[in-house]
């Protein structure tokens, strides 16, 4: 528990935590404001309606969530890799091990803190995203009466939980890659390459890629409402959400087993 609470304290003060949330919120804000502006200036009614979707409630809930979970996955890979890689690069894992700390407990507690930070980051992004969408709706002159739509609000908690779980799985992937490479930079680079490589591979190997970590993460939140988020492999026939959720769990556990196993066996130098 000490390691976990200390891990949280470290992440709260860490610049990459703010940068990750700031990046998501900033991009979300730009897209929403751009959508509202485009809708306002568009001469085509169809185009204007499409642009307004981002600021029209209750549909905006799903679109904001979809955006967060899509780009959030990439940010999570980077975040997980940054945290794990720095433990090796800065030599702080070495300090803990030399004090007699359990390597397994240290890795798992550190990751548990990441999972909590992901939840907090997604919650902050979602709340700010709604606020930005409301501003966008005001700019575009769209009614915000759908904000309190009961059906949409009832669906949100389950979707948010699935989304969080999927994003955490992607963070675990980055975490495991950076542990294997023992480096922040290599971990982040490899994580990003894996993210886009998987999308590219879906062009050639769709039947395999649909079981891969990012594809299953997208499929797990694709309950019809979110559309799987940006970057969803259009050529890959997605798995059923519940099946995908099981595979998300498998990838999450697998990533952590790899990270723990490697750390336990690793010879810590430098």
């Amino acid at each position: 528990m000490r390691i976990f609470t200390n891990g949280l304290r470290k992440l709260v003060g860490r610049p990459v935590s703010f940068v990750s949330v700031g990046l998501l919120v900033g991009l979300l804000g730009l897209i929403v404001i751009a959508s509202a502006t485009v809708a306002q200036r568009s001469e085509s009614a169809t185009a204007a309606q499409r642009a307004l979707a981002m600021v029209t409630f209750p549909g905006a809930y799903d679109l904001i969530l979809s955006f967060m979970l899509g780009l959030g996955g990439l940010v999570a890979v980077i975040y997980g890799a940054a945290i794990a890689g720095s433990e090796w690069g800065w030599g702080t894992l070495k300090n803990a091990v030399a004090r007699g700390e359990s390597r397994t407990r240290y890795v798992l507690a550190t990751f548990a803190a990441i999972a909590v930070m992901v939840a907090v980051g997604l919650a902050i992004t979602f709340v700010l995203g709604i606020a930005i969408a409301l501003v966008g709706a005001t700019i575009a002159g769209v009614s915000t009466s759908g904000l309190s739509d009961a059906d949409a609000l009832a669906r949100l908690p389950a979707l948010a939980a699935r989304g969080w779980f999927s994003v955490v799985e992607q963070a675990a992937l980055g975490f495991a890659i950076a542990t294997l490479t023992r480096s922040q930079l290599a971990g982040i680079g490899a994580g990003i390459a894996f993210y886009f490589g998987e999308g590219f591979a879906s062009l050639f190997l769709p039947d395999i890629v649909k079981y891969m970590p990012f594809a299953v993460a997208r499929a797990a939140v694709d309950t019809g409402a979110t559309g799987g988020g940006p970057g969803a492999g259009g050529l890959t026939e997605a798995l059923a959400p519940d099946t995908a959720l099981l595979l998300v769990a498998a990838w999450l556990v697998g990533s952590l087993v790899v990270a723990v196993g490697f750390t336990e066996r690793a010879e810590i130098t430098g």
Binding site: R2, I3, N6, R9, K10, G13, W90, T92, R99, G100
Partner: peptide, 19 residues
């Protein structure tokens, strides 16, 4: 080896949490 973004005191607290 320390967390560069933490203070000296916070680094010692962090170290004290292990072991």
């Amino acid at each position: 080896s320390f967390y560069p973004y933490l203070s000296g005191r916070a680094n010692l607290r962090s170290l004290a949490a292990a072991g």
